[in-house]
Design a protein around this nucleic acid. Structure first.
Ligand SMILES: [Mn+2]
Ligand SMILES: [Mn+2]
Ligand SMILES: [Mn+2]
Ligand SMILES: [Mn+2]
Lengths: 223, 223
DNA sequence: CAAGCGTTTTAGACGCGGCTAAAACTCTTT
DNA sequence: AAAGAGTTTTAGCCGCGTCTAAAACGCTTG
């Protein structure tokens, strides 16, 4: 079968690739994400390249091959679907489901994943707003805007919260800014890049760390 | 964390211990069950003994320590609960849930297991009739009789089917003898040890391989 | 353009969990 | 009591996935 570590590497490479699709993913970024040394990442890259799952150029980072991307998408699919399942069916708080899904994503047979998907009625996203690939690896890419880059005034809907920012989810919940909630950007400080928003009748000041981790979508047709 | 192989060894030692609680579990029986060589089992025994999970006497087999038994019961609990979940919630056929649970049992966080248990309303047994340990490792041991040893005439309820006998489950389903069904032992051939039963208005002849794998319980108070 | 610094790779080590082949043991059988 | 058969252990090997320490690389900067 797959090998736990392999799958985590592939999925992390995929996620890093998404963040900056231009250039190859560096050894260091993968090592950081995975919490291993750069030497360990290099060793894994050699095994993955040997198995044609990534293209690895010495000192030049890695890129997923089509087969590698297929596997990565499978892991991401299992991860996000099981998150949805944990949150919606077992009522586990959304702050915890990422960690649990990280454990479970490697041990779910296809049939189990497919039945979960049916039970959940084919959800589009995980509880944090990331899209769920379908069983062929296709995934919808909606047009979202980082809160950091949102123009003032418009009322928008929170669509996605970066689940990997330490401590962010409980904070977002405290502020009532979970995916689905509405907010309006009321100000932006050009010096410290703080933004001011209005949501649920309250004003909040958010730092760059937060406004860089929140994606929103327009509530009306954009014209 | 736990280590996949370790957990499977511990659970298999536990299950073999249950079958013959008298004497220690032999290297060969564990190797057979696990599908590895005896040499591999010996090597694992040394690691488990080093970690005080089993008592290992050279050429004398192994026994679980209290800590080892705790861990084993945890694995068995996760296995049987997830079987119930797969069968009852995801409607996966009972012939397949054992294999799937074998994969999943190592990756289920405690909170997930506990929530599944609550969702299922604290089931007593897995879909094949084996008892589910509670979260403290306690498990009910009902008084069951092997069909092989059942006296003639009495009408009884099927309580447990050995899920590890190759090909047995589909056969049992074909005959309509799933746990919960009623049957009556109508004859026993002392030469070949075949038994004749009546169930659902039909007569069936069952070989020893089957009658040794079916447990039944009385339907009335025994007196 | 050479130095220096941060990144990456190599070298060498370790524990896990598997294997094969050979040696050691135990138990039965003559 | 010795032999033989079957079981178990040892010895030696391998790949995975991690580590540390040292060497190699490449990019920026004086
Ligand atoms: Mn993972
Ligand atoms: Mn998520
Ligand atoms: Mn297992
Ligand atoms: Mn079962």
């Amino acid at each position: 079968m797959s090998g736990l570590a392999r799958e985590d590497y592939l999925a992390d490479i995929y996620r890093l690739q998404c963040e900056r699709p231009k250039d190859p993913v560096s050894t260091g970024s993968v090592a950081d994400r995975r919490g291993v040394t750069a030497a360990s990442a290099t060793a894994m890259f050699k095994r993955l390249a040997r198995d044609h799952l990534i293209v690895y150029r010495n000192y030049g980072g890695v890129t997923l091959t089509p087969e590698g991307e297929d596997l990565a998408l499978g892991v991401v699919r299992r991860h996000r679907l099981v998150e949805r399942f944990l949150a919606d069916v077992l009522h586990i708080p959304w702050q915890q489901v990422d960690a649990y899904a990280d454990q479970m994503e490697h041990a779910l047979p296809d049939e189990v994943v497919d039945r979960m998907e049916a039970l959940l009625e084919n959800p589009y996203t995980c509880p944090h707003g990331y899209p769920i690939p379908d069983k062929h690896g296709h995934l919808a890419q909606p047009h979202l805007v980082l809160l950091r880059d949102l123009p003032l005034g418009e009322t928008v809907r929170v669509a996605r919260v970066n689940e990997r920012v330490p401590g962010l989810l409980p904070y977002i919940e405290e502020l009532g800014l979970m995916p689905g909630s509405l907010l309006r950007l009321t100000g932006r400080n050009p010096i410290d890049l703080n933004v001011t928003i209005e949501a649920g009748g309250q004003e909040h000041i958010l730092g760059l760390r937060v406004s860089e981790a929140l994606w929103v979508e327009p509530t009306e047709a954009k014209g």
